[in-house]
Design a protein around this nucleic acid. Structure first.
Lengths: 166, 166
DNA sequence: CTGATTGCAAATGCTTTGCACGCCA
DNA sequence: TGGCGTGCAAAGCATTTGCAATCAG
């Protein structure tokens, strides 16, 4: 995966008359070492944690580059943070469900949903180009039994906590 | 409509131990005089255009209040602007289609879509609470005939122009 | 009267940018 | 060698906040 990704980056970089650099390679390498969604600060922390030196400016610039290269997608998780999703390369069509109990994000896809969206769009006289669906939901298990495995996992792993809507 | 809306605001304000003020009433009145989506600056301009005096701070504070009162919903149109939709009071369930040719936003709803979303959510072990769907699409008429009525209307009316994704 | 509301300006927080230096092709 | 890339600090922008004056109930 990692090699594939770097290759794709370098293809894009070459095609645009840009240059291959250490920072870009390292940033890409760190991003795709996990499938987790992340914010700029998340990424910045991961970089520092691995002793990789790259300024915030470079991180911002590289993220913009990756979005242009369609290797990364900005998603809206319902909070005020710009979040990046590295999973669209493997999975070009997917949606997000955000648990309002623990904040955990579940990716899912469904062909019926895609078909229906396309139909509705066509009926309105358009051709669908891109789609963004986010479902905010609460955990049935938590409601039923008073405990939610995701909630517990979230606490243990210090994942993104419940979205603070500012 | 206008009276209904003011009434609802005042109900909420009263229920929270807050106070009825001129600024709030005027802002609400201006917002619901149209069904158009708007940004803070749009609203601020409309206020000034009608000679209504309210500081930006008050406008921001009132918008926050209206969102809390569930009279207004923040929506994501795919640009970097916080946009407000005043139509959820009349139409609690609807989605947005954004034309990438002219930027025009079309609201639509479909019961099948809602059902499918709920099914998918339940299958994942959650109960849907809230949903946000945005389709970006291009106009078939423009592709076919080279002209798009919305595009023309957009130019004539100086509506929101094509989204600059910065 | 009392505490909520307002306006102003200052502060915030995220992101972008200008510039001088360094490095890839 | 030419110019793209980087880091730094400053600038930008949208939004929030502290404070003193004002206003609603």
């Amino acid at each position: 995966m990692n090699e594939l990704v770097k290759e794709r980056l370098n293809e894009y970089v070459a095609s645009q008359g840009l240059r291959q650099t250490n920072q870009r390679n390292e940033i890409v390498s760190v991003i795709y070492s996990e499938t987790e969604h992340f914010t700029v600060e998340d990424l910045f922390d991961r970089l520092r944690g691995q002793g990789i030196k790259a300024s915030r400016a470079t991180v911002y610039r590289t993220l913009k580059l990756l979005v242009e290269a369609e290797m990364l997608v900005e998603i809206d998780l319902g909070d005020d943070l710009t979040t990046y999703d590295p999973n669209f390369m493997e999975n070009p069509v997917h949606n997000h469900l955000v648990c309002i109990d623990c904040g955990k994000v579940t990716e899912f896809e469904d062909s019926h949903l895609e078909t229906l969206n396309d139909c509705l769009t066509r009926r309105l006289g358009f051709r669908a180009v891109k789609k963004s669906l986010r479902i905010e939901a609460c955990c049935e298990k938590l409601r039923a039994s008073g405990s939610c495995p995701n909630l517990i996992a979230a606490r243990l792993n210090k994942k993104r906590l419940p979205n603070r809507k500012k």
